[in-house]
């Protein structure tokens, strides 16, 4: 990507402020083998609903109306295939048909295009369908040139959690182990939905602060049930939790692997010693104690047909 991507599109993200290294080290500035002039050899397009600091870095800024991402992406898919688009309705997106045709031209002409999408796309109205739209668009562009789309995720090792859940359970998130094997259904088993509906009677929280970000009914439920938080510092969630276990900071005083948002693994080597245990140690010790309790799955066979 660093060596090849000559068209870089940021969609619903503000890398200048949220992922500054993304520009400088990764996608935009570096000189690559096939892009010897670095930034000059690349075209950068920014798609967002408002002017952020990233606009300055962009060659083209496309400002779309809030909540129209899915429509714009769907229009682009149609233009890529030379299909009909209702011109009157394009205006409602905040863009003109010419702007969109120009973008498609650039996409098809690119030698290697890449789209990074942020929470401005994946967490607004349409959510997973917005992500699906940009991934589908990228897949379809491969009929013309090389194209990829990649999420820019929040801070912390979100990608790492996703990667490991996938290899141990087959699913990235929203997983239930109630039946002794992994089941997946976002909306049903995703944390926020479980909490909002009050479907759990205990919570163990690790490396996250839902008390700061989740909707109020979810926070109320966390306060109602026994909630255990593992965190190096005091957080919104730790304040409402029944138990807060202080742990060492992963990456600074606890070793591990971090997964970059393109899923490239990086070793985390501790620089400092911490008086606190690592998350792993705490979970291991909890697990040891749970293990000696009577097994609630003993009556089950070792393999089973699934419920769904």
């Amino acid at each position: 990507m660093r060596n090849r991507a000559d068209l870089v599109i940021y969609w619903g993200g503000n890398p200048a402020e949220c992922h500054p290294r993304h520009f400088t080290k990764y996608a935009l500035m570096p000189k690559g083998k096939h892009l010897p002039r670095g930034r000059k050899d690349r075209t950068m397009v920014l798609v967002d609903i408002r002017e952020t600091k990233s606009v300055k870095a962009a060659d083209i800024f496309l400002q779309i109306r809030p909540g129209r991402d899915f429509e714009v992406l769907t229009i682009l898919r149609a233009i890529v295939k030379g299909q009909y688009v209702n011109p009157a309705m394009v205006a409602e997106t905040g863009l003109t048909i010419e702007q969109l045709r120009d973008l498609v031209d650039r996409m098809k002409r690119a030698r290697f295009g890449v789209m990074f999408f942020g929470m401005g796309l994946s967490m607004t109205r349409g959510k997973h369908m917005n992500s699906s739209a940009i991934l589908t668009l990228a897949a379809e562009l491969n009929a013309y040139t090389k194209f990829v789309a990649m999420p820019m995720r929040g801070h912390g090792n979100v990608t790492g959690a996703d990667v490991i859940m996938r290899w141990t359970t087959g699913y990235p998130f929203g997983i239930s182990f109630d039946r002794g094997y992994p089941r997946f259904n976002p909306g049903e088993f995703s944390t926020v939905d479980l909490l909002v509906r009050g479907d759990t009677d205990a919570a163990l929280i690790l490396g996250a602060d839902p008390g700061a970000t989740m909707p109020q009914p979810a926070i109320d439920h966390l306060a109602r049930i026994p909630t255990i938080v593992l965190d190096p510092k005091v957080t919104h969630t730790s304040r409402l939790a029944r138990v807060h276990i202080t742990t060492a900071v992963t990456g600074i005083s606890a070793p591990g692997t971090g997964y970059r948002m393109d899923e490239v693994p990086l070793p985390l080597r501790p620089a400092l010693k911490s008086p606190y245990p690592t998350d792993e140690e705490v979970v291991r010790r909890i697990h040891e104690l749970v293990r000696v309790k009577p097994d609630w799955l003993v009556h089950q066979p070792r393999t089973t047909q699934q419920v769904f």
């Binding site: 039946r179 070792r302 047909q305 769904f308």
Partner: peptide, 19 residues
Amino acid sequence: HRRTVAFIRTQTQRSGLGG
């Protein structure tokens, strides 16, 4: 994943899915 046989977690075996 849903249509395969599932491995249920036991004291010696981790849960998982075939397919």
